[in-house]
């Protein structure tokens, strides 16, 4: 049996909203293998973002444990979590979250500056198809291009895992597909494990592994023997 790369073990997360305790995540367990492309699928409020945040070291569970190889992420101190996010995780968000006053290249430099083994920025920019637009500011780029900058920024850090929270949520169909293709390409070319969160079930077809969630629980985990080419996905 292949050793796991990411492992979630009975993770629960409760939020206290005034006098009411909200169960965001309950007893979630799964494993991801190294180099896998996973899609965490579920409707709004199903707990998928919470799960991603815990794996990404941005949040801590109420109970349960998460591992990256043999290191327990959930046992990390604040300092160790910062280092973990800095060197091992790349994040891509729905709303890009790039700095308006920095050019595309400078946005990537911002991330690269603090990590241990960054990749060559120009090569990354070339691979995401933005080399020609590297000196443009976000306001001069389309939504798809901005998301490419966000992806380039995440992978330039040379992370071990790329976590994407609804990366196509703010994009039109064509741009969405091109972003998914890019993520697949990154997964293959750089060998980075990718986890994509989405409520769009069509996207699940391109994944090696699909984790389905509902009401804070994992309801299904399945492996795609033959993942679909992102270009063929339709929604």
């Amino acid at each position: 049996m292949e050793p796991f790369f990411i492992k979630a073990e009975n993770i629960s997360k409760y939020y206290q909203m005034g006098e009411v305790s909200v169960k965001a995540l309950e007893d979630a367990s799964f494993e991801l293998l190294e180099g896998e492309f996973a899609v965490i699928l579920g409707p709004s409020g199903s707990g998928k973002s919470t799960l991603l945040n815990i794996i990404g070291g941005m949040d801590v569970p109420t109970s349960g444990r998460a591992f990256l190889r043999d290191e327990e992420i959930t046992g990390f101190s604040e300092k160790k979590l910062t280092e973990y996010r800095r060197n091992k995780v790349g994040f891509v968000f729905q709303f890009y979250n790039i700095m308006a006053n920095l050019t595309a290249r400078e946005n990537i430099e911002l991330a690269v500056e603090i990590c241990k083994n960054p990749l060559d920025i120009d090569k990354i920019m070339e691979s995401v198809g933005l080399l020609e637009r590297k000196d443009h500011f976000p306001s001069q780029l389309s939504g798809g291009e901005q998301q490419r900058v966000a992806i380039a920024r995440a992978i330039a850090k040379n992370p071990e895992i790329l976590l994407c929270d609804e990366p196509t949520g703010a994009l039109d169909y064509t741009t969405g597909v091109s972003i998914l293709s890019l993520l697949r390409q990154v997964n293959k070319d750089f060998g980075i494990t990718v986890a994509v969160i989405t409520h769009n079930s069509a996207i699940a077809e391109m994944a090696d592994k699909v984790i389905k969630m509902r009401s804070g629980r994992i309801v299904d985990i399945r492996t795609n023997e033959q993942p679909m080419d992102p270009e063929r996905i339709e929604w």
Binding site: M58, R85, A111
Partner: peptide
């Protein structure tokens, strides 16, 4: 806020 949050996610510490 968004910018600093992104930086936190990128691995910048609070002190940085």
């Amino acid at each position: 806020e968004m910018e600093f949050s992104s930086m936190r996610v990128l691995g910048f510490s609070k002190n940085q």
